[in-house]
Design a protein around this nucleic acid. Sequence first.
DNA 1: ACACTAACCTATTCACGTG
DNA 2: CACGTGAATAGGTTAGTGT
Length: 425
Amino acid sequence: MYPVLASGEREAFEDVIDSIPRNEDGNRQRKQAACCSPCTFPRGSRRRRIVLKPHQKEALYTLFQQNPYPGITTRTQLAQEIGLPESRIQVWFQNQRRRHLKQSRLRSTASLKERQCHSEEQPPSGAPVCIAKEARRKRTPISPSQRCVLIQAFEKNRFPSIVTREDLARRTGIPECRIQVWFQNRRARHPGQSTHGPLNALAVGVDHEPSQPPPPVPSCSPAALNSSPHCPPIDPVDDIQTFAVAAAPPLASAVLVPGVPSGGCAVRSLRDTVAQDMQAVWGREHSHPSRIPANHLSAGLALGECLSFTHSPLWPPHRIQSQGHSGSTGMAAPPLSDGPMQRCVQGSKVVAARAEMWEGSVLQPAHASPFPDDSLELLDELLSTPELQDQGKALLSGYPQEEEPEGFLESPLTEEEYQALLDML
DNA sequence: ACACTAACCTATTCACGTG
DNA sequence: CACGTGAATAGGTTAGTGT
């Protein structure tokens, strides 16, 4: 239906999606989406809607009749049997219970009017009256580094799209559905800074309006981290750089726009994890030469991470299948020849726009990678030259995992080289 | 155009681990 | 026991799909 987005374009597009204003309910305003033309503005903010097959519905209805409140074990078992994600089964039961309750109430209301004899509230037929409670899902342990990644994403966008959630899932290893719940809980417990209540800030779709300073306690800022029980104290000097590697897509801040502050979220442990992963991968490079492209090694964590925010070879065991993404999540891509998307993928403009948007904020993310996938591949080729690989080896072997040189995030390329690269792209 | 319903949201509560 | 936080719930809304 829609052409497939390259990863860089996908990120830029996601920015568009995420920036769509939401109404007071947190839902994106239809008007805004419509103004971008239904043809050129694909649906990417939501998960692709599943069309349940008859046998799946039958199984769900059967189980619902037996128990409208299935526990995690039952849901997981059913998920395996009918080939649906457990989270979708949970949602189906939520919706089904409500439909059931609604019908029950309608019936009871009708009978109430007829007979006028219901003096006492009766529990709806779908309520868990005599059914023993099944076990809940076990708490999902979220490590400080994972939490910091989530917090950073939360501060950037309180309502992440399915693409963002899946990306966070890949980066943290936490299931997407758990990330969704985490954001729900987080929103509930950390209402936005607004004089008109927490929902007011949602109306603009982004958390920090350009004219509005960020919340005074950004949980992932060094100050917040120092006071947070989940984030270890950090050296703000060191971690200003760390943030760009661990949390933000630092293409603009660390590479394309040298000198732009890259933010304050310190995710040392994640950075360390990345560094260790790099080392480990380097160690087995010869046995799995294709798993991590040499260019990522060559550029060290700086460029490598820059280019791999959404398809990092470091975290997921495979490169993100951006071309096939629409198959798994329903991410539909707009035609890029014209329209808002095309404009949005003009990287420098995006970077500039984001920088403006975040002006005054502690964080200075440039979320949208201006490079479409083919450009990334071209860059991959450029960076896989033996010369740059040598640089990468030197970079990796030059410092231990726990401490990086001062210019850790500095690109191995000069500004002229960057410009040349950009010109080529 | 409309009905149905998956997906997503808030508000609230439960439940569990930790200090 | 208080607190933080993940999980689950009810209920409202949006938007994709089928008729």
